[in-house]
């Protein structure tokens, strides 16, 4: 598959429906994700990031575009490739890197790890490492909103590979039948782990081409253009808040790195990565800002401040102690402990 060139959604046009403040926010979010993920990779090479990690390098526009459109109180449900979505909701780089480095300053003090980033106060209701598990869970959060008349939306992110697991289909059907305020976001980065998604689906698009089975509109967008993502998210959120039911959005994108830290991604055809890097979301957005008259200096200032934030976070994490062993058996049950007998 080649990178999408369809700019029909006004992405490159001078349609200033988004406004400079929001554009700067979308850019900053993408740079925060880019710099943090790159740092996570570097720290892994230094053996300072332990366990596994799944990076979103190249997929920043999806996380930024959706988070930019979310309101306080809206809920994110992420996969093990969840650093980007966690950062995009405003969780600090230090907390995320700390968890990856399994330090006491980590988001969950080392008890969850890279694949389970959670920050309830930011609406990040967990990162789920069993493929598809969180789609029904997002339905449940949306059911609560529907039942209570709350106006928040549950947003559930997942990869192209998820569209082949049973829970995907159960959740889509359930959400459509119950008309739940949930937005399902498929990040199609072309590969389910090491296998091209096109080899394991009988249709061209893993999510969009299945929408009609659940009575939903077919939505396939350029996931590397944060403006396109942002506009699509706004529309889906408005539909959810109006009680009109769920949406399924397929975002075409590409991961610049392998599936996980252990994967050099040698299965990719020669030239594919280079082709997609021409449509690097951060690069696209930098150009977009310039088109709208944002000065180079202002952009450089954002870049520098983010880099400083990531540098400071890195140093704080390096200096942080490992988690104390006395939390090993806390929070198994709601009483704070782990007692299963008297």
């Amino acid at each position: 598959m080649t990178p999408p060139n369809d700019r029909t959604n006004g992405g490159a046009g001078l349609n200033d429906d988004i406004g400079e403040a929001k554009r700067l926010e979308l850019y900053r979010l993408q740079v925060v994700i880019r710099e943090s993920e790159q740092r996570a990779f570097d720290l892994f090479l230094q053996n300072l990031v332990k366990g596994t990690s799944h990076l979103s390098l190249g997929q920043e526009a999806v996380a930024a575009g959706f988070a930019g459109a979310m309101k306080k109180g809206d809920l994110s449900f992420c996969t093990y490739r969840g650093h980007a979505h966690t950062l995009a909701r405003g969780v600090s780089v230090e907390k995320v890197l700390g968890e990856l480095m399994q330090k006491d300053n980590g988001l969950m003090r080392g008890k969850g790890g890279s694949m389970h980033l959670t920050s309830e106060e930011h609406g990040v209701m967990g990162s789920y490492a069993i493929i598809g598990a969180h789609l029904p869970i997002a339905c449940g959060a949306a059911w609560r909103a529907q039942y209570r008349g709350d106006k928040d939306v549950s947003v559930c992110f997942f990869g192209d590979g998820t569209t082949n697991i049973g829970a995907f289909h159960e959740a889509l059907n359930f959400a459509a039948v119950w008309k739940l305020p949930v937005v399902f976001v498929c990040e199609n980065n072309l590969y389910m782990e090491y296998t091209p998604i096109k080899d394991v689906i009988p249709i061209p698009q893993p999510a969009a081409d299945r929408a009609s089975a659940y009575g939903l509109e077919r939505i396939l967008i350029d996931g590397n253009d944060a403006d396109v993502v942002y506009r699509t998210a706004q529309k889906a959120f408005a539909r959810a808040r109006a009680g009109e039911g769920p949406s399924l959005i397929e975002c075409l994108t590409y991961r610049h790195s392998g599936h996980s830290r252990a994967d050099p991604a040698k299965y990719r055809p020669e030239g594919e990565l280079e082709e997609w890097k021409k449509r690097d979301p951060v690069k696209i957005y930098r150009e977009r800002l310039k088109q709208f008259g944002v000065k180079e200096d202002a952009i450089a200032e954002i870049d520098a401040s983010v880099r400083k934030e990531v540098d400071d976070a890195t140093e704080a994490c390096k200096a942080a102690p490992p988690p104390p062993l006395d939390i090993i058996s806390t929070d198994v049950y709601a009483d704070g402990g782990w007692a299963w007998r008297n």
């Binding site: 598809g132 029904p136 869970i137 997002a138 339905c139 449940g140 949306a142 059911w143 609560r144 359930f174």
Partner: peptide, 28 residues
């Protein structure tokens, strides 16, 4: 009908939905 709801034959959806509702304030 709002509090007692039939579901499709979708056990993962049933338990997943119960969990999402429980996480966000209901007692399913």
């Amino acid at each position: 009908a709002l509090r007692v709801r039939d579901t499709p034959i979708s056990e993962q959806a049933i338990l997943g939905a119960a969990m999402g509702a429980a996480m966000t304030g209901l007692k399913p």
